[in-house]
Design a protein around this nucleic acid. Structure first.
Lengths: 335, 335
DNA sequence: TTGTAAGCGTTATCAT
DNA sequence: ATGATAACGCTTACAA
């Protein structure tokens, strides 16, 4: 039932090599022969054996996606589903496939790494949401693996795609300023993550561009989660801010809970802007003003660039920044 | 840099076969030799080449997960992330890996299917959320592919794992009855899907077990989405139900919106129970009473059973049903 | 217990 | 333009 090159060759009355040439559409095959061979291939539904093929070509047409397991079911956050969608679409369009690895799970991550990468399963890998102190990236570099990070990485050797965290945050804070808010606090993300750092930088820039002082007392760090946001807001309460930029929607939601417990009204007393534009942001009351990231495009871009790297269409580290967009709803007091 | 069996053999002063035996821990290798060889393997970080290996063993240690692309970013629904987590954990624990395919996307699904399956990439496949009329399953059967469905499938030849939709729904409806509700409507899922059918059956059973009539007028069909739930509820409004079982949390949320627009209070006027226990269910006001599915366990079980099938540890179609649990919050009027 | 050698299904080199 | 033939890195009889 499962045919081989040899079998097709026999059926077509040609040699193995000719069939191979047809399949890889090598030019030097007489058109009529080529057509005849194709016919038989289609007829019997022949498909070359991937393993045999990659044994000689050293290419598997599979790329990996490495995600820290911990971050994988983030509270109602469809980040990974969307990212994966973008990646697979691009992959498939290029005849490639996706292997998914959740790192740091029950299994020894070293084993996983070795099995998958040294085992030659992959042509390249996309790593997502790495912490700056994650040993994965240095290891990939050291091993000469072709890879790309989703999220900027402060080592000029690593390729990455990311959204424009700085500009997005600036837009958010500038919007609050335009609404007349003056004591704008922020719940920033972990400073150990680039996204956390960049969004905080955007906040600072927006303020300073208006000649306003950056005040550490108005900054509290969260971990991107709802609980983290709530706790951070509780610390901020004493400063009596009239607006808040939260570096993630989930932290914004946590902050809102803390504010309400303290009897503050949204947006009258405190205007709020988040970051992400989770589905939740449009369902909740009031609708959450937030910065929307093009997550699916980010994934598509990641795959695109990684495949360019793998196929050798581009040389050296690649850096792509995708624009974001402010989505104004009710939580910031507009209209 | 990248070693081969031959290289290790030379370093260890033994033959290729001996090294191979060590790696596959074949019994007949003298303990001291075995240890010596392992030492060298660890020292140079040797890892057998997966393609070469599977060329001869016919096993790839990779299983596929096929998901309809359309269903992949369902509104805030962390179903797939959790499912994937369960699957990968089990996979990795068995030294296997996961290849993810979103079907019916931009690419011709036939191409994808052929490439991946006939190409010999996979040892087996998990299919999730298939419609009853999806041609994928019949095709897998026809091709003799080892596979398993997440979600029951009405063909006794196919193995599946599923949650206990019928009992879960019965529990939900019985709870509403215990609260004294008597006009209990339901927004059921698509009758073209087994989950839709089963939950409707549970609703009916709960009623009839209490000697109450099943009334079609109290049934409206949705598509598991929020908008679907809202529209269905609008149709149900005229029946003035005092309670509602929605076959998904998202439909429950849509229904709540429709009810509020009609001036009904939750839970005083209409008590509500959903199904899924999305994160959203505990955030919203009032908290949504719902039936919790063990999604991650479902995934783990899927991988477990599929691998049993692949490794030949079990024979014939396998059917596993996992229990669910009623989570009581405020939307059903308890307490 | 260990080694030799024959594949596994491809691609790629070299003649023809 | 086509066909032998040698890899590719591994497993697995079969011999020793």
């Amino acid at each position: 039932m499962t045919h081989t090159l040899e079998g097709i060759a026999r059926l077509a009355g040609v040699s193995r090599s000719t069939v191979s040439r047809v399949i890889n559409n090598h030019p030097s095959v007489k058109p009529e022969v080529r057509e005849h061979v194709w016919q038989i291939i289609r007829q019997v539904g022949y498909q070359p054996h991937a393993a045999a093929r990659s044994l000689v070509t050293k290419r598997t047409h599979v790329i990996g996606l490495f995600i820290p397991r911990a971050v994988t079911a983030l509270f109602g956050d469809p980040f990974f589903p969307l990212l994966i969608r973008g990646i697979t679409d691009t992959c498939n369009a290029h005849g490639c496939h996706l292997m998914l690895s959740l790192c740091s799970g029950h299994i020894d991550p070293d084993d996983l790494y070795r099995q998958v990468l040294r085992g030659g399963y992959l042509d390249g890998v996309v790593v997502a949401s790495t912490n700056l102190d994650d040993p994965l990236v240095p290891r990939l570099i050291g091993d000469g693996v072709r890879f790309l990070s989703v999220g900027a990485y402060p080592d000029s050797r690593v390729s990455y795609v990311d959204v424009d965290n700085v500009s997005g945050t600036r837009m958010a804070v500038e919007h609050l300023l335009r609404q007349g808010r003056r004591r704008i606090a922020t719940i920033c993300g972990p400073r150990a993550m680039v996204a956390g750092r960049d969004r905080l930088a955007g906040y600072r820039q927006a303020l300073e561009a208006r000649g306003m002082a950056y005040d550490e007392a108005l900054v509290a760090e969260g971990d991107f989660s709802e609980d983290g946001g709530r706790a951070a807001m509780q610390r901020l309460l004493a400063q009596a801010p009239d607006a808040l930029f939260a570096a993630s929607d989930m932290m914004a939601i946590g902050a809102i809970k803390a504010l309400r417990e303290a009897g503050r009204r949204i947006p009258q007393d405190v205007a709020i802007v988040g970051f992400d534009d989770l589905p939740l942001a449009s369902i909740m009351e009031p609708g959450l003003t937030t910065v929307r990231q093009p997550i699916e495009r980010l994934g598509a871009m990641a795959a695109e660039v990684l495949l360019d790297l793998v196929e050798g269409r581009v040389e050296g580290p690649q850096h792509v920044i995708l624009p974001v967009q402010l989505v104004v709803r009710q939580s910031c007091g507009s209209r």
